[in-house]
Amino acid sequence: MFIDLHVHYYPGITKDAWKMGYQGLVLVKSSEKLSSHSNGPKGPSKDYKNSDIRAKISTFEGVEVRAKNPEDLKRKIQRFRNSTDVLLVHGGDLKINRAAVEDVRVDVLAHPYQGRKDSGFNHILAKKAAENGVAVEINIGYFLRNRNHRRQKILAQFREIMKLKAKYDFSLVITSGARSIYDLRSPRDLMALSSCFGMDKETAFSSLSNVPEAIIEKNQLRHQIISSGVRLLE
């Protein structure tokens, strides 16, 4: 079961994603758009509510938290955690990256390398990410939006993350970050592309299927968890 953990909603996305070979989607909204009027994302809009494709493809909701500083991040995580299926943190700033991997409530650290010259990720963050179960996102859309010179830089950043992954074994997710059909890519093609930055086939497969599945499963049980290792059973 292939799941894309980071797509933005547009009309007809479920149909396009189904055609490409996805069975699950996480529709992500930015925390800035949500903060003005409501506490959490609204329920699914009517476009995919009444289409028969909805039966074949499962959709989840996610929030991408954008924060100015670590304190702001903590506050926003607290606010959105219970109302959403998947919580992503908009990475790129070193302090935000650090705060995100240190928080067990975060599911995914999205593009820690965005807008940076280095990968925004080092052995310390890698260790923390592995400890706290925070997955790191490889955003193919970010790679595709950039051109020649930047592209090779981004592949080098991906490769650096892969090097750390080999040693510290945190989880990785490959996402498209799509806003229209022109950003969506077939998961099997992405697996082939991932060999360009030194990812082997098994890792690529699991970061498109098993890891996102595990994240969603974990979040469905999250309300039962009292502290790490202790779960409330009905």
Binding site: I181, Y182, D183, R185, D189, L190, A192, L193, S195
Partner: peptide, 23 residues
């Protein structure tokens, strides 16, 4: 085959218009 497959997701534009390829 795998290398050729990896070419398809990299295509984004042609003559300034958006294009998407998938197998």
């Amino acid at each position: 085959l795998d290398e050729v497959r990896a070419i398809l997701p990299v295509v984004t534009r042609f003559n300034g218009k958006k294009v998407v390829f998938f197998t």
